[in-house]
Nucleic acid binder design. Structure first.
Lengths: 126, 126
DNA sequence: GCTATTAGTTAACTACAGGTAACTGGTTAC
DNA sequence: GTAACCAGTTACCTGTAGTTAACTAATAGC
């Protein structure tokens, strides 16, 4: 470790760093819901997003999971949680400036998903 | 459904399509290993990648998981499996042309992971 | 008092992702 | 014959991601 012997090792080392970086991303953003929640919130930065509204917007997510995932995202500084002075009380969730760094990731996943649908269609026809 | 009543609904509709697309992506590429395997293979398209070599290259993956994930990726047309005429037999795994469409996704995840490390460091120092 | 809204929490459960380790089967080299 | 390489498979187990449904607590309207 530490000594770089040749080009092969340089490539090897940086590849391992890449894989480690991706492990981190997957650990933080992995699972069924986190990226969906982030996508939902980054699409609506102009409005206030309270708990029930988010739950209605993301098809199929339960209160328990939404609550848990929002906590995780808050811990990782991706979203903020603000209590609103409304009756009944609402809690506003918003993407942080840092959280917006996720946009390129979700953009790529959306594009890839759409593209994959097209690919599947083609494969069925041909 | 079908009738678009106003701009709000248009935005709503396309957002739901986006989320659906992302659900697809997450379903196909989700889990601890698939994206790591794809990253590993797309980084080495010039060489042949046999089973043991991949397992050695991706730290911590077991034969069972690698075997299972490669099968899944093959089913989704992301990689090909070719038996090599070597002694002992080796099996070559390669990313398909279509599989390369995943590169922008893994690129973004690698970048985000690296950036996140930096962010955490800063937060500790400040 | 009853119902509805908000934001969750809690318990009880299931299913599957994933880990560990032993094993098959074929080939080569010593 | 035995050790080492290849490519997996199989069985067993565990932890946790995720589901469902019931429940708390506060406020407002009828």
């Amino acid at each position: 470790m530490g000594t770089v012997k040749n080009k092969g090792n340089v490539r090897e080392a940086s590849c391992q760093e890449e894989l480690t970086a991706m492990r981190d991303s997957i650990e933080i953003l992995g699972g069924k819901w986190k990226l969906l929640i982030m996508r939902y919130l980054t699409n609506r930065t102009s409005e206030s997003n309270h708990f029930k509204k988010i739950q209605r917007g993301i098809n199929g997510i339960s209160a328990k999971m939404l609550s848990k995932e929002l906590k995780d995202l808050e811990l990782n500084l991706m979203v903020t949680r603000t209590i609103q002075n409304t009756r009944p009380v609402t809690i506003d969730y918003a993407v942080t400036e840092y959280g917006k760094s996720i946009i390129p990731v979700t953009d790529m996943l959306v594009q890839w998903g759409l593209n994959h649908r097209e690919k599947i269609k083609e494969d069925i026809l041909v």
